[in-house]
Design a protein around this nucleic acid. Structure first.
Length: 642
RNA sequence: GCUGGCGUAGCUCAAUCGGUAGAGCAGCGCACUUGUAAUGCGCAGGUUGCGGGUUCGAGUCCCAUCGCCAGCUCCA
């Protein structure tokens, strides 16, 4: 039979040759690295035999499918280890995930961290036993009978839900798991593994179901890669914004004040202010109008908007002189009222209301997480009211805005389009129009995006933007949502060219999302070393001895008068000690000033990353600093002034 | 909210079987006048998250509660 390879070459083999043998015939290295193979576009085990002319591609760990197969095989090793130690364990699911795998168990014993070490040891034993993964295919009924007999209730439930007539399962010795496969040839492949954490997880991800015990782990073919990965985790831990927030004295979240409420210290508040000033300016440049709504609005209004019915559990309420008020969890209501304060003409549209709106949401206690998940936070929120014809260009404007802003911070991002969910309001025509507007706008902007069918808001479709930080993690910040419901409920109208009354469409959109969350992401993205324009202290002036304090003071005064944020350290300490402190504070520039500098009107510049940059005149230093210390601006406004 | 783990000085962490709560850093004082990542000596710092209980005796054991951490569910 004729076997064709990805490079187009082909070779003859006797019928029934195993993939393993084919790999060996090509090369020792391939035979060693191949985990599985794709035969005529089907993923199969290396032990499988090829019976007819085929196109074959061997899968190694470098292929995404290979990573998947490898981790999945590792999860079987872990499950086998758990069953050896805790024989009464029932297996749920154990897939591979990004960077690792997990397996959910229903175990009579409560698993603890101590058990992880034991399980790891047992895994190492299983690996050293080189147990082959043996594939079997059974009829659905036989499979159900088999798993029922061995008490694997969850597997039975899963097989019952499967549509196909036959199911495959894999055995390693006495360990059996229902599994589509393929797997690596034997357990010996999973040499470098590490169990990472232990947590609860609901069966089928439904909070009404039983909570199972989940073990997370990861595995790599080479020890070196495992080590690199573990180092990366350590690096991420060092970047944790909660830790850096304390170390850099940016903010605190304390029990005395209440969980989920952030207290900004001077440096954190300064960074936020710089971000907010940047945003205000950019919004004004793009034709938005800044508005400000109240923190409390009467409950009746929240009933009208539908929040009272749909969002009450997340809201805080208060009672003043017998009247019920709701503390705003969203900013749209006041914006609506502003729109309604006049009769609007089609000539007025689009109207873009922007508010740095602080909202409070009663989030479940278990979800709070530093700045990334708070109960009180501030959004860079805007509501755009426009005609149906304007929707496309408005969305494009917002996408352009997002592009510009993400570029400033050096984020890459991905966009997703979410379409009509089953539970939703509005006519089919409205949905069709809105969805195609979003899609059209994405296409017009040349953006590639994923579509999440049925993942839109109940009132309209949306575009979500996920940004990728410096170490590859994804964060949801910006979003653009189309809404027909609120204009309807609030009876918003404009007078059209035809003199008739028409309903505007409302776009909800945020660029940074929550400023607080965005700041948290920024802290981790920059590992606390903010670019100069955002750094709370841009230049720190360090004296060698107090003999130079007078000159150093005049340098500080000059910088301050140029709008530079300066701190001085004239203490009677060794220069090395002062530099060390400034480094830990991640101040971009240090100016070191001794008698030499004082004599010549110069400064010795030290950069937080580059180190000593040598001696320059103060004017020269200022010239170099001016651009990078000022807030970025875009050369032309996109929306035009009103 | 759920499952599991953890709360000791401002921070990082010790405290053996239930037997006098300690250290480093930070802070304060004194000395040192210092050239590119930590000068030395001294002082002070605590109702062991909060509340009950067991015990002659609780940081340690039990109960309850609040918070934090990991994840699940939910989300900006």
């Amino acid at each position: 039979m004729k076997i064709t390879f990805p490079d187009g070459s082909s070779k003859d083999y006797p019928k029934g040759t195993s993939l393993k043998d084919i790999a060996s015939s090509i090369g020792e290295r391939l035979a060693r690295e191949a985990l599985a193979a794709r035969v005529n576009d089907h993923l199969v085990d290396l032990s499988a035999q090829v019976e007819k002319d085929s196109a074959i591609r061997f899968i190694t760990f470098n292929d995404p499918e290979g990573e998947d197969i490898f981790r999945h095989s590792a999860s079987h090793v872990m499950a086998q280890a758990v069953k050896r130690i805790f024989p009464d364990t029932k297996l749920a699911i154990g897939p591979s995930i990004k960077d690792g795998f997990y397996y959910d168990f229903d175990t009579p014993e409560v698993l603890t961290e101590d058990n992880l070490a034991r399980i790891e040891e047992e895994m190492t034993r299983i690996v050293s036993e080189h147990i082959p993964y043996v594939r079997e295919e059974l009829s659905k009924d036989d499979a159900i009978a088999l798993f029922r007999e061995i008490g694997e209730d969850y597997k039975v439930e899963m097989i019952e839900a499967i549509d196909e007539d036959t199911v495959s399962l894999y055995r390693q010795d006495d360990f059996i798991d229902m599994c589509r496969g393929p797997h690596v040839p034997d357990t010996g492949y999973v040499k470098s593994h590490k169990l990472l954490s232990l947590a609860g997880a609901y069966w089928k991800g439904d909070e009404h179901n039983k909570m199972l015990q989940r073990i997370y782990g990861t595995a790599f073919p080479r020890k070196k890669d495992l080590k690199i990965y573990l180092n990366r985790l350590e690096e991420a831990r060092k970047r944790d914004h909660r830790r850096l927030g304390r170390e850099l004295d940016l903010f605190s979240i304390v029990d005395e004040a209440g969980p989920g409420f952030v207290i900004y210290h001077p440096k954190g508040a300064l960074i936020r202010t710089i971000l907010e000033d940047f945003e205000k300016k950019e919004h004004l440049n793009r034709g938005y109008q800044i508005v400000i709504g109240p923190q409390l609005l009467k409950v009746d209004l929240w009933k009208k908007s539908g929040h009272f019915d749909n969002y009450r559990e997340n809201m805080y309420f208060t009672d003043v002189e017998g009247i019920q008020y709701g503390i705003k969890p969203m900013n749209c209501l006041a914006h609506m009222l502003i729109y309604k304060s006049h009769i609007r003409s089609y000539r007025d549209l689009p109207i873009r209301y922007f508010e740095l709106g602080t909202v409070y949401r009663h989030e479940k206690s278990g979800v709070l997480h530093g700045l990334l998940r708070l109960r009180g936070f501030t959004q860079d929120d805007a509501h755009i009211l426009c005609t149906p014809e304007q929707v496309n260009s408005e969305i494009r404007g917002v996408i352009g805005f997002i592009k510009d802003v993400m570029g400033v911070f050096g984020f890459e991002y991905e966009m997703e389009l979410s379409t009509r969910p089953e539970k939703s309001i509005g006519s089919e025509a409205d949905w069709e129009m809105a969805t195609s507007s979003l899609r059209q706008a994405l296409d017009d902007e040349g953006i590639t995006y994923d579509t999440n069918e049925g993942d839109g808001a109940f009132y309209g479709p949306k575009i979500d933007v996920k940004l990728r930080d410096a170490i590859g993690r994804m964060w949801q910040c910006a979003t653009i949502q189309c809404d027909f419901a609120l204009p309807e409920r609030f009876d918003l109208e404009y007078v059209g060219q035809d003199g008739g009354r028409h309903r505007p469409i409302m776009l909800h959109r945020v660029i940074l999302g929550s400023i607080d969350r965005f700041l948290g992401v920024l802290i981790e993205h920059y590992a606390g070393a903010f670019p100069t324009w955002l750094a709370p202290v841009q230049v720190k002036i360090l004296t060698i001895t107090d003999k130079s304090a007078t000159y150093a003071g005049s340098v500080a005064g000059r910088l301050v008068s140029e709008g530079i944020r300066v701190e001085t350290d004239f203490r009677n300490e060794k220069i090395g000690y002062k530099i060390r402190e400034s480094r830990l504070e991640k101040v971009p520039y240090m100016l070191i000033i001794g008698e030499k500098e004082a004599a010549t009107g110069a400064v010795s510049v030290r950069h937080r990353e580059d180190g000593d940059r040598g001696v320059v005149s103060l004017d020269h230093f200022l010239d170099d600093l001016r651009e990078e210390s000022s807030v970025p601006a875009f050369s032309q406004s996109q929306g035009g002034l009103r």
